[in-house]
Each structure stands twice: as structure tokens, then as C-alpha cells.
Nucleic acid binder design. Structure first.
Lengths: 199, 199, 199, 199
DNA sequence: TATGAATGAGTATTCATTCAT
DNA sequence: TATGAATGAATACTCATTCAT
């Protein structure tokens, strides 16, 4: 059962896209099945229930879809960067830059993260990604010793907040680039080792 | 007219307390009048509407109540600190420490802040407080030059995230103190001026 | 989209019928969704909201339905009459006669007209119909000169009152015919030209 | 019990006045106890329930109060008129003229009459007044023979409609006088005997 | 008298979900 | 697959009335 191909089957993808748009525009709270169905061009909410086990399932599919888009955008940029510090910087800057390219996805994801909370794998996934990066970076001397979990939490939440505000204000690409550098500077300094680091 | 005493009159206060508890436990989304009424021991939601002009009014009363509690706890600690850096540190540490004293209030406020968004005065109030502190600190040479708005956003959101997680996990006071210092260190380093950079 | 057939689709028509009955029996004020749902044999008010955009929509559908019934009954009788005076008489007599055939519709419409007031197209439609009829009749010498608006108001309201009372008292067809003639006489005399008119 | 003086005791009168204003402005439907209490400067609806046995009681008191005002205005004018026709004319003209003097009372009464329906004594009182006037007038040869009840219904309802529209449109006194004459003409002609009458 | 509080039923509307076709 | 219909609970809010003080 449910052996779906990697890319969502037609209708499913269509519904997910509609849901993301609805969330991006009206927020998580107003993302009802009927609104999503209307946006998807469906005449009834029944089809959503048919394709998804429930609201949580649909939301999870949205998160998965958005993450894929984000990964496609951010991963090359992060991989191109060198060193732990460089990669941290690349993550932050490319994340902020995404607002210019995929504003709906970014807005929707932040809303989903806020409301899904710690139940979501996606949220925890990003957290552990940061933590692991910090731990290996600390071993390599790129970062000073600190509570990796707390800092991962603070960094991701701060990043989300800046990104959300930028998205809400329809910031232009140049300003986004500046914001990204600003935030990257902030975090790099916060994580930098006492003396001289990898950088 | 309506000159209510400083501390809320009996029932109003009782309802506000119940609302805060409900929000703290189930989140903003599940904080319906019926749940709050049940928690407050009221036989109907009508009484809430009797005491408050509407949901926004009740929520505003919750925010006001929580802020009062927070101010009572944090202000003396912040005032006792010296210098821009010291006060920033005191703000962060006392905010994290509050989780041990008033966990429900803290959790509820964070949820309210997340969902009220930029409409709320309270949220913007904290933001501008941070911004002003940063600006005067920059003039005094205590902080390096940075985008005060972006950093204020990142700091407050990060602080909230750490606090929310700590609240959810019922962290003990010793661990809270450590977390506060950790986060304060992080932010102080991030905002520290170039010179003498450990960098 | 939404190209409904001329006669309402099953459930919609059923709800409209129920609403008309409820209004006819308890008046506009007591025509709540729950009463209508109960009368229509529906388990919840949700179905009404499913079929109609809101209360106004349902009420408008009721008016439309009733007007259709009235037109089907009255139009042939009016068209069969000759001259401005004859048609005025036919309008009044057929309107009163309707009470015998469709008492619920008549009672409901009068209540709707009273409460919808001047907002409704239907009300104003009848008024302007009367006014235009008066104006052309005046030019043709069938009616004396008078304030067409004021007289249209007085005539329609008086007609409604007589009809409403007749409906409430479940008057028989013979008595209705007499009432119709009586009222037609009254209005024809009131509108008749000074000397000898068309009549 | 309930031996009240002729003019309402202070608070009662105050509440009645407030109720009339509220009905005149927002219509019967929006005339809730809370709105009336607010308008009357009362801090709770409890006082209304204390002074009146229920909503119907309050409404009846409003009708009584308005009728007294109307009688004070109209009766002298009617008594000054001579003959059955003259008095009919005086009734109509003074009723329309009242809109200029007591718009709130007029608007409220019409709304009350519409919604109270035939239950109210006041409504039936006016009806029987008209009927009796018609009957004696018919005997005196001032009016042609007609169904006194039906005509009384039609006349009063038509009068109300014209008055209500005039009140809603804030018609000036000159136009009101013209409207009154227009309507009086209409009704006098409608009731006039075949040949030459008293007139 | 007057207040403030309380009640319980009532309002329209929205929701996710189910199901027969 | 897809639709349209149906359900029943939930939403915030208003209502007239009652009652202790």
C-alpha cells in the first residue's frame, strides 16, 4: 500500500502545491481543506481525504515538498562552501536568499514549523543537522565549545524569524543578500573559537 | 467607567489564569472559549464574553498579565546589572530563569507571540526595546555596528526557542541557569566589538 | 460553474420549502437555521450552510421561489385583463386570490418584505412596477394625476396587510374573491380621474 | 400590585424612552435588553427585568408611551376637523406631520406594529377606531358602503408605509404636509360615496 | 432600587471526515 | 478517481432572565 513514486502522483502534488500557497497566504490557521480544495480547483474536500490520510498527512507532505525545494536550492551552495564556518555561512545566506526565489514555500514552511512544533521530523532533522555540524566543527577547532543543542535552537529560530520578516515585507534580492551576510556574520562571530579558528 | 483595579477583579483574573494555563498546555490554536471556561470552572462560555469584549480582548489581557509577571521578575535583575553588555546578559539570563518560576506564563507568552505576530504591541515593544539598547550600546562602543533590527529579531526569536524548549522539558533551575549563561555568552560574543576580538 | 437548473436541485429546493413554511408559521424573526433544518428533516444546520452561502442567500432563494410561484399564478390573470384600470384590478384580485392557493408562500413573502425592507430588489421591483404602471396610466388618462411613489407605497402596503390578515384567518376562496373585489374597487376609485376615465 | 401612577415612575419612563430610541435607530430586531440598558445609562440589564415583567411588557409600555405622544399631537387636530371626511383627512395629515415632530416615536411605533402584529391591543385599537369611524360615516352618508375592516386594514397599513418611508428619508415639514394631503386625497376619494356626499 | 455576576439556550458559520454513487 | 452530499462537533458570541448582595 501507498507505494508512491518519488515525485508525487499528479493530484497529490497538485493538492500539496495548493496547500502550500494557501498556508503562505493565509497562515496555518486558515488552511482548511475547503480553502485548499478551492485553490486546487477541486469541487469537494473529499478528494483531499481520499489522497491523504488526514490533515497531518497533508501537512507532512507539504513539509516534505518544501524541504525538497529548499534542498535543491541550498545544497549546491552549501556544498560549494569550504570549511565548517564557510558551510554555516552558506547555509544561512542561501536560506535567506531563498525568500527571493521561493517566497511561498519559505513562508509556508515557517508557519508549519511554528505550529507543528517539535512533533515534526523535519524540525528535529534540521536541529540535529546543526548539532552534528557544530560538534564536528568543534572537534576541528572551527567552533568554540558550546551547548550544541541550545545554540542550534537559537540559531534556527533566529534564522526563521529574520526570514519570516523578510518574506512578509517582500524584501528585494539585494537587501536579502545583505541580510544574509549580516546574520551569517552574527552567527559566525557567536560560534567562533576563543583564539584563531579554522577560518 | 470601567476603572478596573490594578490587579484584575476576581472572575476576570480567574479567567485570565485559566486561559494562560490552557494556552500553555494545548497551544494557542486549541485555546477555545469552551476549554478556557471548563478550566475556569465556569458553566458556560457566556461568562467569558461577559467579562471580555471578545477573544482578542481576553488574549490581550493574558499578554498584559504575563508581561506584568515577567517584568516583576526580570526588571530588578536587569536594573542590577551594569553596562550595555551586562544588561543584555541579565535580560537573557533572567528570561531563561523565569521558566523555573513561571513555566505556564512563559510557554503561553511564547505561543501568543508566535501567533499574534507583528500585530501585537507587546511583540513590537520587545523588539524596539532591543533595538534601542543596541543602538545606544553601539554608540557607547559596547557593541559592534550591526543591523539592529535583524539582530533584535534573531536574538528574541532564538531566546524564545530556547526558553520554549526548556519549558517543554521541565528543566530544573540549575540547568536553566547554565542555559541562560550559555545563551548570554553566545549573544554577547555575537554583538561584541571588533577590537580585542578573540577572533 | 454552479449552473443550477431552473428548478432548484433537490436538497436546495427542500430547504427553501422548509424555510418558507417556517417563516409562514413563526415569522421572519423565528426563522433560524436550526428550525429550518429540523423542518427539512436535516440532522444539522451545517447542511444549510453547505447549500447556501449564508442566511441572506437562503432568504433570497426563498423570495425568488415565492415570486416565481406568484408570477405563475398572477401573470396570466393580469395579462388577460385589459386597460390600465383592468390590470390594476387584476393584480389586486389575483394577489388576494393567491392566499387560497399558496397561503404559506404569501404569508412568508409578506414577512420577508416587511423585514428585508428597502434593501431587497424584490420589494423595490414591485414598487417601481406600480409606479410605472401609474405613470403610463396617467398619460393615458386612466388615472388622475397623483404622487406615484406615495400611492404605490400605500397601495402595496395596504394590499399586503389585507392579504396577511386573510392568510392568518384562513379565509375561504369565496370570501377571498369578495375581498379582492372590495380592495380593487377601493384602489380603482382612489386612482380614478376626476371626470370619466378609461373605465 | 403594580398600581402605577399614570405617568410612568422615573426609571420606568427612562427605560421606555431608551427603548424607543434604540428601536427607532436599529429596528425591532436589534433592540436587546443590553442595548437598551446601555442607552438608558444603566450598568446592567437586571434593572429592566426588575421594572418590566418581560420583553413583551417593555414593548407594550413603549407602544403605550408612543400612543400617548401621538394622541397628544393628533387628537386636537382631529377634533378641530369637521365631518367624517374632514376627520379622516385630519387623522392622515396629522399622522404624517408627526414624522417631523417625533421621528423616533413614529419609526419605533411602525416597527413595533410590524413585529407585534395582531396580538397588540394598540394595533387592534386603531383598527376598530377606523372601522367605527367608517361605519358611522357610512350611516351619515359621508362614505360609500364598503367592507370597513378591509378598508381599515388597507388604510392604516398604507399610511404606515408612507410614514415609515418619510421617516427613513428625513423628509422636511413642507414635503410632509404635501405627502399628507396627497394621501388624504387618495383615501377620501377611495371612500367617497357614489354621488355627492357629506363633503 | 440597583449592581454585577451567572446561567443556559440560542445564533450562524466552519471544520475534517465519511460515504454512496 | 472524483463528486456532492451528509454528519456532528466545534467556533465565538448574544440573548433574556435570575439572583445574591
Amino acid at each position: 500500500m501507498r507505494a508512491r513514486t518519488f515525485t508525487e502522483s499528479g493530484r497529490r502534488a497538485q493538492i500539496v502545491t495548493a496547500a502550500i500557497e494557501v498556508i503562505a497566504e493565509g497562515g496555518f490557521a486558515k488552511a482548511s481543506f475547503s480553502r485548499i480544495a478551492k485553490r486546487a480547483g477541486l469541487s469537494s474536500t473529499g478528494m483531499i481525504s481520499y489522497h491523504f490520510a488526514g490533515k497531518d498527512d497533508l501537512l507532512a507532505a507539504c513539509v516534505a515538498e518544501i524541504e525538497q525545494v529548499m534542498r535543491a536550492f541550498m545544497e549546491p551552495r552549501i556544498d560549494a562552501a569550504e570549511g565548517h564556518v564557510g558551510q554555516l555561512r552558506a547555509y544561512i545566506e542561501s536560506n535567506v536568499a531563498m525568500v527571493g526565489e521561493h517566497p511561498a514555500e519559505v513562508r509556508a514552511l515557517i508557519d508549519l514549523v511554528k505550529n507543528a512544533g517539535s512533533r515534526s521530523e523535519a524540525v528535529n532533522g534540521r536541529l540535529t543537522l546543526f548539532e552534528q555540524h557544530f560538534r564536528t566543527g568543534q572537534k576541528a577547532g572551527a567552533f568554540r565549545p558550546f551547548d550544541t543543542r541550545a545554540v542550534a535552537l537559537a540559531f534556527t529560530a533566529g534564522l526563521d524569524a529574520v526570514v519570516a520578516t523578510a518574506a512578509a515585507e517582500q524584501t528585494g534580492p539585494a537587501e536579502l543578500a545583505r541580510l544574509g551576510r549580516e546574520l551569517a556574520d552574527l552567527y559566525v562571530r557567536a560560534a567562533a573559537p576563543e583564539t584563531k579558528g579554522e577560518r
